[in-house]
Amino acid sequence: MLSYMTNNLSEPLTQKNITDADLIGQIVASVGKKILDKTEAIETVVATLIAGGHVLLEDLPGLGKTTLAMSIAQVFGMDYNRIQLTSDMMPSDVLGVSIYDAPTQTFSYHKGPIFTQFLLADELNRATPKTQSALLEAMAENQVSMDGKTYQLDDVFFVMATQNPIDEAGTYNLPQSQLDRFLVSLSLGYPDAESERQLYSQSYMQSFKESLPALSNPEQLRSWQQQALTIHAANEVLDYLQLLVKKTRTHSEILHGLSPRAGLSLFRLSQSLAMLAGRDFITPADVQRAFYPVCRHRLVTKDNKPAKEIIKAIVHDTAII
């Protein structure tokens, strides 16, 4: 646990805790070598992982979604599966299938790609609603029900789903209730000019091919997940968090504000962001940082106005002194 030495303020952190926070820092830095100029997005993904949630990535192709997913799976030493969703995919293609085994005269279950620790579900909105909901249900319950039997997924189970926001033809937009299952939604966006230039450099090309060394393991991740739940939030911070949530509900340009579950998501993400920062308590800045990724896919705005400006304005106008 992180703790402050109260008597000697010049020595802020104990030895053990340096390891935890630093290790996470190293992980972020390590992934950052592959995804340039996106530290904040990487941190958000890692924080979501520690908060036990799932990520929805909305990006154009070629912005490094896959790279990000693979790198994170690598540094955490997780099993990694990738499914490319298409409109002709059936739920069994994701969850697995029971096959009649003639010799034994029983049904045997063949596990689908979902039985892994890190699942990259590419172009989720291309799948039919049936497949989408099968996947999302499994995500929510952390288990697969098939023919009256339930199969547990791994303790550490993380989904990173991607959506292509531009190609609208032949897609099935996720309903609001399904979107709520993702803790955060992100968009990597274009790198800045200098980082983009680096992409072309010889050294980057070299390192890009190498896989990242595992800095952690699922076991440790699980313990971090437990630890994140105990991160303390002072009443003042909770007030602030609640106020932000409330403002989304009364805002005139937002049709539907955050649900209580979304509020809880905001809290969880703030907790793990605080852990990333090496603290055992949440500060308002954690909430501010968590607010946009949590709201981004959840808020339904009027006239389809971009949510980003509205969310930014809410944070900006809510004074915290």
Partner: peptide, 16 residues
Amino acid sequence: HFLDTYLAARYSKKGN
């Protein structure tokens, strides 16, 4: 330093 001390004093669990 001010920030670290301040945050700990105001938001952490420890009643120092």
